[in-house]
Nucleic acid binder design. Structure first.
Ligand SMILES: Nc1ccn([C@H]2C[C@H](O)[C@@H](COP(=O)(O)OP(=O)(O)OP(=O)(O)O)O2)c(=O)n1
Length: 1112
DNA sequence: CGCAGGTGGCAG
DNA sequence: CATCGCTGCCACCTGCG
C-alpha cells in the first residue's frame, strides 16, 4: 500500500518557492518512505539561502566579574565582549530562488505515482476511511497510546517531555527523514547531517568555487600600480599614509576603461584593489615589526563616513591590522557590517539606518581592550527594538526638513562616494562578496547551544525570563482569586444586594518590586535608598527589570537597557534576579490582603492589586486601611508598598502614582479636575507610546496635559482613536472610569480565553527541520500548560516574528529579535483538543503555509484559542468539523462524552469545510453547489484519529489541498499576451505571470507570503509606500535617476499588484508618487522619474476595459 | 449588518 | 562572555456572506 499524493506534473511551474512548499506539503508518497522524498524536496535542493551562515567571531575573552561585591562597593561598568559579528548576508529581498537557479525545479521528477492525487474526492475519502482497517502497519501496538495511557489519566511529566512524534509508532526507516522526528542520539543526527551534506554538495561546491574564481580573477585585474604603491614604500614608518584615499570620486583614474555609467563595476573593482592592498599592508607590517595583532575585527566590514577622530586613515590602519575589512565604498549590497561616523546629516541618518552605525571610539576602545566591544554601546543612532520608532519619527521629520531646504542636502560631507541609489532599494547580497561560507554549518555557530535549537532551550529560557514569570504569576493569581470569588459567591450574593453606591478603590503596589526584594535578599542587604540599584541579567544589552528610586532620579527607567542606564547613572549597582524571593514575598503580600475583609481583590500583578474596599469604608477611613496595609506588609516582608485611593480604578491608579514612593494618596471626587489637570496624556492608563505619538503627530503638541486634553471634543477623539478608545480617553480626561474590578460581577470576563507561548529571544534556525523540531517542543509546553489550567482548545494561531528586511542579521541585543515584521495564521481543529501531536502537526502546517524562511525567523508565538474547561460543554457552533463517533473511542473522549455526543451531527447538516464562515444554521440555503466539493465530514474521524500522527498530517494536508482546489478562484489573471506588458519590462514577474498555472499552486501558500516587496509583505502596505517615497527622495537629485535594478524591482511590484488584482493599491502607489514628484519638478532626477511614472500609467491604460471591470 | 481572521497596542 | 524581548486581552480594520 502506498499513500500517494499528487505528482510533480500537476505543478510544473517555475516558481521554486511555491514548489518548495508544495513539495513539503504534498509531494510525498508512501506512508513512511515518502518522508525521505519530501525532505529532499525541501532541503535537498541547494539554494542561495542554504549558504548563509553567521560567522562566529574569534576573540579572546577576558572575563570580568559582573557580580556585585558584597557591601557597598559600587560596580564599575565592565567592558564587554561584543556579540559575535556576522557578515551582512541579506538574502534577496524578493525571494525568488528561481532567479538563482532558473529551470532548476524543486519538484521531484521521479515518477512519484499519482494514486492519491488522481483520486477523486469520494475515492480519497473511501481510501482514508479504509486505512484504519486495511493497513495494520499503522496500528502498531503503541498506537493505542492515544486512547489508553495518555487519555485515561493525565500524562506524567516524563511523558510530557517526550517528543510528540516519538510517541507515535513509526517504522525505523522513517527516522532520518521524517520532518518532525526528534533525533534521539547524536549518531542519528550525524548520519542525517552527512546525508544532507552529500545531497547539497554538488552545486554548493560549484557556487563557492565560482565565487572564489571571480574574486581571484578580479584581484588579478587589480591595478598593478596601486598594488605597487603599498609595496614600494616598505620602510615608511606610517605606511598607511601611502594608501590612496579610500574613497574616490566616481570618475577617477581608470574610469575611462569602463563603460559609461557602470559605476557599480568600477567601484567593485576599486574595492577589490583596496582589499588586496590592505592585505599586503598587513602582511608587511606584521613581518616588518614581527608582531601580529589580535584579529578582533575578523568578519567585520567597516566603512568610515565623514570626518572622524581619529581620522579615516588611522581608522583604516587600525581596522585592517586587527583583521577587519575596510570598505572604501559603501556598495549597493549592504555589505558593510559597521559604519563609523561621528555625526550624520539627516540624509545619512536615513540612508544608514539599517546599518550598525558606531562612533570611532568603538574601534579605538576595542583595540585597547583587545577584544571587540559591543557595538550597541557605541551606537550613534539608536535604532533597535523599542527605539526604532523614535528613529523613524526622527527620520520622517528630517525628511520634511529636507523637502523645504533643498540646499541643506548639498552640505553633506564630501568624503563619501555616492551611495544613495543602491542603499535605498537594492539589498541583494553581492555574490562576489567573500562570504567564506563555512562548510561546517554547525561549527560556524558555536553559540548554537544557547539558541532555541537546543532541545533544553525552553526550560532554560523560561526559568530566567522575568516577563514569563510575571505573566504566569499574574495568571496564577487571577485564576486563584477567581476560584475563591466563585466559591464565596453563593454565600455573598444573598447578604449583599448590589448597590450603586459610590465605590472606594485602593490600588496597592510595591515600590520598585524586584529591586527592593533583590536588595533585601542580598547578602548583606543593601539599603534601597542609599545606592542606585537595578535588577538585570547581563551587561549592556540586558534589560533593567526594575531600578530603585535613587537610580530613577538619574533618569533610569524599568525596561531600559543596562547600557543606557549606565550612561545615565555610571555607578549603578546590578543585582541578580531572585524569582523565588519575589514569589515568596508576593504570597505574604496577598496573604495580608486576604486577611482583610474586602469586597474584592483583583490581582494586577505579582506585586500589585486593586482592592474594592467600599463596604469596609462604612466603618473605616480609607487612609486608615492603607496605612494598616502598608505597615503590615512592611512588618512581614521588609518591603514598602504604596497605596492610591479613589472612587474608581483610574483615580486609584493615578493616586498611586502620586503616592510613590513609599506613601499614600487619596483623590477626592471634588478634586478630580485639579488633580488630573497637570498629569500628562501619556500618564493615563492605556496610553502608551503609539497612541501618544499619534496624538502628538496629529495635533502638533508635545506632552499634552490633561486639562488641554479636555478641550478636545469626544467626536474629535473618536475620529483620532476609534469609538472605544476615543470615548475612554474622553472619559479618563474627566476622571471617569467604568472599569469593574469585581470578579463576581462577571466571572466569565475574568476566565481565561486564550493560552499562548511566546519566544522572541534565542530564535536562530538554519532550516525548516529545526523549526519543526522547535514547534514540537513548543506543543509539549502548550499541552503541559493546558493540563495545568485544565483546558482544551479548538483553534490555534502561529505568529512569527521575521527579521525586518532592513534590520541587521544580528541585532544589538545578544540573540534578540531586533526589528521584526510579524505574520500570523490561525486554524481550527474542529474539536477541542490538548494532544501534543495534533497541536504540533497543526503548527507545522501553519509554519509551512506561511512560507517563511527559517533563517530569518526571530520569534515564535503560539496561541490556543477558543478554550473550554476540559469536560465542560462546548459551544457546538464553534466546532465546524463534525466528528463521527459511531464507535466510541475509549479513553479521554469517553470522559468527554458530552463533547462527542454533541459532535454527532448529521453530516448532511454541515456545509463543506471550505466555507469556514458559514455556520450550521445557515445550511438550508439552496446554494447550487459546485459538484465535486469535498465533504470533510465524510471522513471517518475515528479511523483518522487512530492513525499515527504522521499519517494524520498527510491526510490533513491532502484535504486542505483538495479544499483549496475546489474553491473557485475569484480573480482572473490578466492576459498578458494581449497587453504586451512583459515586453516592456523584462522581469522575473513577467515570466511568472505569463505562466498561468502558477496561480493554482499559489493557493497552497498563504497569499501574504507570495507578494512581497523588499522582503516586506504586502500586508504592510504602508511600510512599502514609505519605502518607495524614501527611495524617490534619495534619487530625485541624481540626473541618472534611480538604478535600473531598483526600477525593475519597483516595476515588478507594480505588475504583481495588477496580477493579483490589487488595482487600488497600484493606483494608490501611482498617485502617491505622482503627488510627491509634482513638488520636485526642479530636481535633477525629475525627468527620469517622470518617465518611470508615465510607463506605469501607460501600463494601466493598456489594461483592457474588460480586465479592469473584472478586477474591480 | 455581524462575524472571523489578522494586526497593533498596552501593561507589568 | 553576551542574554533569557512574556503573555492575555482589547480594539481596530478588512473582507466576506
Ligand atoms: N518593563 C518591565 C516592567 C516591570 N517589570 C517587573 C519588575 C518590576 O519590579 C515589577 C513590577 O512592575 P512595576 O511597574 O510595578 O514597577 P516597580 O515595582 O519596579 O516600580 P514602581 O511600581 O515603584 O514604579 O515588574 C519588568 O520586569 N519589566
Amino acid at each position: 500500500m502506498v499513500l500517494t499524493s499528487s505528482s510533480a506534473q500537476d505543478w510544473s511551474i517555475d516558481d521554486s518557492e511555491v514548489g518548495r512548499l508544495l513539495n513539503s506539503l504534498s509531494g510525498r508518497k508512501g506512508g513512511e518512505e515518502v518522508k525521505e522524498e519530501a525532505r529532499e524536496g525541501v532541503r535537498g535542493e541547494p539554494s542561495e539561502e542554504d549558504k548563509e551562515e553567521a560567522h562566529e567571531e574569534d576573540y579572546s575573552s577576558t572575563d570580568v566579574d559582573e557580580s556585585v561585591i558584597a557591601g557597598s562597593q559600587i560596580e564599575v561598568p565592565s567592558s564587554q565582549v561584543d556579540v559575535p559579528s556576522s557578515q551582512i548576508e541579506d538574502s534577496p529581498p524578493i525571494k525568488t530562488a528561481s532567479q538563482a537557479a532558473p529551470g532548476t525545479s524543486f519538484f521531484k521528477t521521479s515518477g512519484a505515482t499519482d494514486e492519491w492525487g488522481s483520486m477523486n474526492n469520494s475515492e480519497f475519502i473511501a481510501f482514508v476511511n479504509r486505512l484504519g482497517s486495511t493497513n495494520s502497519q499503522f496500528k502498531k501496538p503503541q498506537s493505542s497510546y492515544m486512547a489508553t495511557q495518555k487519555d485515561i489519566q493525565p500524562p506524567s511529566p516524563e511523558e510530557l517531555t517526550d517528543d510528540d512524534e516519538a510517541e507515535v509508532p513509526k517504522p525505523p526507516t522513517s527516522m532520518l527523514t521524517t520532518s518532525s522526528f526528534g533525533f534521539n542520539t547524536s549518531d542519528e543526527r550525524d548520519i542525517f547531517n552527512q546525508l544532507e551534506k552529500e545531497r547539497g554538495k554538488g552545486s554548493e561546491g560549484d557556487n563557492s568555487l565560482d565565487n572564489h574564481q571571480d574574486s581571484q580573477a578580479a584581484a588579478k585585474n587589480a591595478d598593478p600600480d596601486i598594488l605597487a604603491t603599498s609595496t614600494a614604500n616598505p620602510t615608511t614608518p606610517f605606511p598607511v599614509a601611502t594608501l590612496p584615499p579610500p574613497s574616490l570620486p566616481p570618475m577617477d583614474v581608470g574610469s575611462q576603461e569602463l563603460e559609461f555609467g557602470d559605476y557599480e563595476t568600477y567601484f567593485r573593482n576599486k574595492q577589490l584593489k583596496q582589499q588586496n592592498q590592505d592585505e599586503e599592508y598587513v602582511d608587511f607590517v606584521s613581518k616588518a615589526r614581527n608582531v601580529s595583532y589580535p584579529k578582533i575585527f575578523k568578519d567585520c566590514v567597516i566603512y568610515v563616513n565623514g570626518k572622524t577622530h581619529p581620522d579615516i586613515s588611522q581608522l583604516h590602519k587600525m581596522i585592517i591590522l586587527h583583521g577587519g575589512r575596510f570598505l572604501a565604498y559603501l556598495g549597493a549590497k549592504g555589505n558593510a557590517t559597521h559604519i563609523i561616523a561621528e555625526n550624520l546629516t539627516p540624509r545619512k541618518r536615513i540612508e544608514f539606518r539599517n546599518y550598525k552605525v558606531v562612533k570611532p571610539e568603538w574601534i579605538v576602545q576595542s583595540i585597547e581592550a583587545g577584544k571587540i566591544l559591543p557595538w550597541g554601546d557605541f551606537m550613534l543612532i539608536n535604532m533597535d527594538y523599542g527605539q526604532k520608532k523614535l528613529e523613524f519619527r526622527r527620520a520622517a521629520e528630517s525628511k520634511e526638513v529636507e523637502v523645504s531646504k533643498a540646499e541643506a542636502k548639498q552640505v553633506e560631507d564630501d568624503n563619501a562616494p555616492p551611495l544613495s541609489p543602491p542603499s535605498q532599494l537594492s539589498q541583494f547580497t553581492d555574490p562576489e562578496e567573500p562570504l567564506e561560507t563555512s562548510p561546517e554549518d554547525e561549527v560556524a555557530d558555536d553559540y548554537g547551544h544557547l539558541t532555541a535549537k537546543d532541545p533544553l532551550f525552553l526550560d532554560k529560557f523560561f526559568a530566567k525570563s522575568r516577563l514569563h514569570h510575571l505573566s504566569s504569576w499574574k495568571m496564577d493569581l487571577r485564576s486563584k482569586f477567581l476560584q475563591r470569588a466563585v466559591e464565596t459567591l453563593r454565600a455573598r450574593r444573598s447578604e449583599k444586594p448590589k448597590t450603586t453606591q459610590q465605590k472606594v478603590v485602593i490600588h496597592v503596589d510595591f515600590d520598585c518590586f524586584f529591586a527592593t526584594v533583590s536588595a533585601l535578599k542580598h547578602d548583606p542587604p543593601l539599603d534601597i535608598n542609599k545606592y542606585p540599584l537595578c535588577v538585570t541579567h547581563g551587561s549592556s544589552g540586558s534589560d533593567v527589570a526594575s531600578c530603585n528610586y535613587v537610580a530613577r532620579s538619574k533618569g533610569c527607567k524599568n525596561g531600559m537597557w543596562l547600557g543606557q542606564a549606565r550612561k545615565l547613572c555610571p555607578n549603578l549597582i546590578c543585582l541578580p534576579y531572585n524569582f523565588d524571593a519575589y514569589e515568596n514575598i508576593s504570597q505574604q503580600f496577598y496573604g495580608i490582603l486576604l486577611s482583610l475583609d474586602l469586597d474584592s481583590i483583583l490581582p494586577v500583578s505579582v506585586d500589585e492589586a486593586l482592592l474594592d474596599v467600599t463596604s469596609l469604608c462604612e466603618t473605616e477611613e480609607p487612609i486608615a486601611i492603607m496605612t494598616s496595609i502598608r505597615s503590615n506588609v512592611f512588618e512581614k516582608t521588609g518591603c514598602s508598598v504604596s497605596c492610591g485611593c479613589g472612587s474608581n480604578v483610574l483615580l486609584a491608579k493615578l493616586a498611586l502614582r502620586r503616592a510613590k514612593p513609599d506613601g499614600i494618596y487619596t483623590v477626592d471626587d471634588a478634586d478630580i479636575l485639579s488633580f488630573t489637570a497637570n498629569l500628562k496624556f501619556r500618564d493615563l492608563p492605556g496610553i502608551g507610546y503609539s497612541i501618544n505619538a499619534k496624538l502628538e503627530k496629529e495635533l502638533h503638541v508635545k506632552n499634552m496635559a490633561i486639562d488641554r486634553l479636555r478641550e478636545l471634543s469626544q467626536s474629535k477623539l473618536i475620529s483620532l482613536f476609534g469609538v472605544k478608545t476615543g470615548t475612554t480617553i474622553y472619559e479618563y480626561a474627566r476622571g471617569i472610569d467604568h472599569t469593574s474590578i469585581d470578579i463576581l460581577e462577571d466571572p466569565e470576563k475574568f476566565t481565561r480565553k486564550s493560552l499562548s507561548i511566546d519566544v522572541n529571544w534565542g530564535i536562530r534556525f538554519d532550516d525548516d527541520l529545526q523549526v519543526e523540531d522547535f514547534l514540537s517542543r513548543l506543543s509539549q509546553v502548550m499541552v503541559k500548560r493546558l493540563i495545568e489550567t485544565g483546558m482544551v482548545g479548538s483553534s490555534l494561531t502561529l505568529k512569527l516574528a521575521m527579521r525586518h528586511p532592513d534590520a541587521p542579521i544580528e541585532p544589538a541585543k545578544f540573540l534578540g529579535m531586533g526589528d521584526c515584521l510579524f505574520v500570523s495564521k490561525s486554524s481550527k481543529f474542529g474539536i477541542s483538543t490538548r494532544e501534543a501531536g495534533m497541536i504540533s502537526s497543526e503548527l507545522k502546517y501553519l509554519w509551512r503555509i506561511l512560507g517563511e524562511d527559517a533563517k530569518e525567523l526571530r520569534g515564535v508565538s503560539i496561541t490556543m484559542n477558543k478554550l473550554v474547561q476540559e469536560g465542560k460543554k462546548e459551544d457546538i457552533n464553534q466546532l465546524k468539523l463534525p466528528w463521527k463517533a459511531d464507535k466510541q473511542v475509549q479513553g479521554k473522549e469517553e470522559n468527554n462524552s458530552p463533547i462527542i455526543k454533541r459532535l454527532r451531527v448529521s453530516p448532511k447538516k454541515v456545509p463543506a469545510v471550505h466555507l469556514p464562515a458559514s455556520s450550521p444554521q445557515l445550511v438550508p440555503q439552496p446554494v447550487p453547489q459546485p459538484p465535486p466539493l469535498l465533504e470533510r465530514d465524510q471522513i471517518n474521524w475515528d479511523v483518522f484519529k487512530e492513525l499515527p500522527m504522521e499519517i494524520q498530517l498527510e491526510i490533513k494536508q491532502e484535504l486542505r489541498r483538495r479544499e483549496l482546489q475546489s474553491t473557485p478562484r475569484k480573480r482572473r489573471i490578466i492576459n498578458r499576451q494581449q497587453n504586451d506588458i512583459g515586453i516592456m519590462l523584462e522581469s522575473p514577474t513577467k515570466r511568472r505571470i505569463l505562466n498561468r498555472e502558477v496561480t493554482i499552486t499559489e493557493k497552497l501558500i498563504d497569499s501574504r507570503a507570495r507578494l512581497r516587496f523588499q522582503g516586506i509583505p504586502i500586508t504592510k502596505f504602508d511600510t512599502i509606500k514609505e519605502k518607495l517615497l524614501e527611495w524617490m527622495d534619495c534619487t530625485i537629485d541624481d540626473s541618472n535617476g534611480p538604478l535600473e535594478v531598483d526600477i525593475e524591482m519597483f516595476n515588478d511590484l507594480m505588475l504583481k499588484l495588477l496580477d493579483v488584482g490589487e488595482l487600488l493599491k497600484y493606483l494608490d502607489i501611482l498617485n502617491m508618487m505622482e503627488i510627491r514628484l509634482d513638488v520636485r519638478k526642479d530636481r535633477q532626477g525629475y525627468d527620469k522619474w517622470h518617465r518611470i511614472m508615465d510607463q506605469l500609467k501607460d501600463i494601466f491604460g493598456e489594461l483592457s476595459s474588460k480586465d479592469i471591470e473584472f478586477l474591480f
